[in-house]
């Protein structure tokens, strides 16, 4: 349901150009990493820069995905909801590249080391949990799967994005040596986005059930 009765003015067909623009914009970080890698502009430790940079973008897109519903409710622009799946798939796309970069560039298929890392290092365990959830959500994101699973079950499954986002931010915070500033910024943003949902529930659930 729409939160404000007075929707902000914006052409109804805005999604017609916003969606392709956003689609292209979300590819720019990847393009930048390719250009920078070819141009040797990623610093002394390009592998670390690529692994971390892709992780940053996965996290940013995950938060952007979670921002869709609160923005839709606040603005009253129903079409914003049409961006959610694309953004979520992009979050998964960057998370997958992040994991691939870790497996191929950082560890170069050293499966023993990878196994130890995933089982023994809590920050990698937590990151892997987040990735596996995103994988499950990406696989079940197609429209026909919504139908096959049934709306309620599909929704319940996809509410796993909340633990995935919490795990992703935790993964980042647990990796950092001493300077927690950036992980705390992500934590605050995630808390805000989850808080919006709690607030919405508290305000509207009682009304709806009445």
């Amino acid at each position: 349901m729409v939160l404000n009765s007075a929707t902000l003015p914006l052409p109804r067909n805005a999604v017609g150009w916003i969606k392709p623009t956003l689609f292209t914009a979300a590819l720019l970080p990847l393009l930048w990493f390719i250009v920078a890698a070819l141009g040797d502009a990623l610093g002394a430790n390009p592998i670390e820069a690529i692994v971390r940079g892709l992780g940053d973008w996965a996290l940013r897109l995950l938060l952007l995905t979670l921002a869709v519903t609160p923005l839709r409710r606040l603005s009253g622009w129903g079409w914003i909801g049409q961006l959610r799946r694309m953004l979520g798939l992009y979050a998964f796309f960057y998370a997958m590249l992040h994991v691939l970069a870790y497996v191929v560039l950082d560890q170069f298929f050293d499966w023993t080391a990878l196994g130890h890392d995933i089982l023994k290092r809590p920050f990698i365990t937590v990151g892997m949990v987040a990735f596996l959830i995103l994988l499950a959500l990406a696989v079940t994101s197609a429209k026909r799967l919504v139908k096959r699973l049934g709306g309620t079950r599909w929704k319940r499954l996809h509410s796993l994005i909340y633990p995935a986002a919490i795990a992703a931010v935790l993964h980042y915070a647990m990796m950092v040596k001493a300077d927690l500033r950036n992980p705390l910024i992500y934590t605050a943003l995630l808390a805000l986005l989850l808080g919006c949902r709690v607030w919405h529930r508290l305000l509207y659930k009682p009304l709806e059930s009445r």
């Binding site: 393009l31 250009v35 920078a36 141009g39 502009a41 002394a44």
Partner: peptide, 8 residues
């Protein structure tokens, strides 16, 4: 595009 960035 690489030319735009400063190589090490």
């Amino acid at each position: 595009g690489g030319a735009l960035l400063l190589p090490r």
